[in-house]
């Protein structure tokens, strides 16, 4: 018997005496993350309806294979067409690792999935089901320490998706000076992603957290205080930017598949 049932501890038979609905939060997390993963997987393999001039889905940008129309490929198409057993690999799969890795190693998502999926712990003061525990000290979880690399990669994506949003100030014929619901959708998505990155703990550390003497770096200190304010809301940004990506894709897909038309303001 280990943990709260160890011989030296107070003899209490149940694993928690909490009377509130402690299981609700992890349950919601599981439900939301699972829905997102299912949706994202379907969409990543679908390999169509991700582009509707001038809009591109964030799941597919930058599109690095020749499956895309060339004007949808911000960084060219270095991978051409790669097929395995005759199946053409979806352009989404070449880039997915970056946003996925970024979120998988995010300090906040780690908390969320350790608690909800891994039940380690399911909620505070609720005994976890595992016999042993080594935390993030061994492979593979020690790789979580690589979060900063994904953070920097994430920044590149933010730039690209921002460019996508700027490019959306065109009409379907490629002329500048137009704006549609799609433009707003892409702009919002990019903004949320920037907020998510800017509020990241690695960002906070890099910008100023690593300093010992703030007073000797007034500018970085100022930036650090701003990032700290955002950082407080990091979990919120993590969720709404996740919804942002999904909903942006939903919108682009709807336009691209012709279910709706992208309404232009001017």
């Amino acid at each position: 018997m280990s943990g709260v049932f160890s011989p030296s501890r107070a003899k209490i038979a149940v694993r928690t005496l909490r009377t509130d609905r402690w299981w609700l939060q992890p349950a919601i997390t599981v439900a939301v993350l699972v829905s997102f993963i299912i949706y994202a997987t379907i969409r990543a393999f679908e390999a169509k309806f991700y582009f509707a001039e001038p809009l591109i889905s964030p799941f597919y940008s930058p599109c690095l294979t020749s499956a895309c129309p060339t004007n949808g490929s911000l960084l060219g198409q270095p991978f051409g067409t790669i097929a395995i057993f005759g199946m053409v690999i979806s352009p989404a799969l070449f880039i997915l690792i970056f946003p996925l890795g970024f979120r998988m190693t995010c300090y906040y998502y780690r908390k969320a999935y350790y608690r909800s999926f891994w039940q380690s712990p399911p909620a505070c003061a609720v005994a976890e089901p595992h016999k042993t525990y080594t935390g993030e000290t061994r492979a593979p979880l020690i790789l979580q320490n690589g979060h900063r690399w994904f953070f920097f990669a994430g920044l590149i994506f933010n730039v690209l998706l921002s460019i996508d949003a700027v490019l959306a100030f065109r009409n379907a014929e490629g002329q500048w000076g137009h704006m549609s619901i799609g433009t707003l959708v892409l702009l919002t998505n990019a903004t949320l992603l920037w907020l998510y990155s800017a509020s990241c703990h690695t960002c906070r550390h890099t910008i100023g957290g690593r300093l010992k003497h703030f007073s000797q770096h007034p500018l970085r200190y100022k930036l650090w205080t701003w990032v700290s304010v955002l950082n407080h809301k990091h979990p919120t940004f993590a969720w709404i930017s996740l919804f942002g990506v999904a909903l942006t894709d939903v919108y682009v897909r709807a336009v691209s598949s012709g279910s709706i038309s992208n309404l232009y303001f001017f």
Partner: peptide, 11 residues
């Protein structure tokens, strides 16, 4: 001191 054992679950 085992900092790596913490999985930042915030309890």
């Amino acid at each position: 001191h085992g900092l790596g054992m913490c999985n930042i679950t915030k309890c």
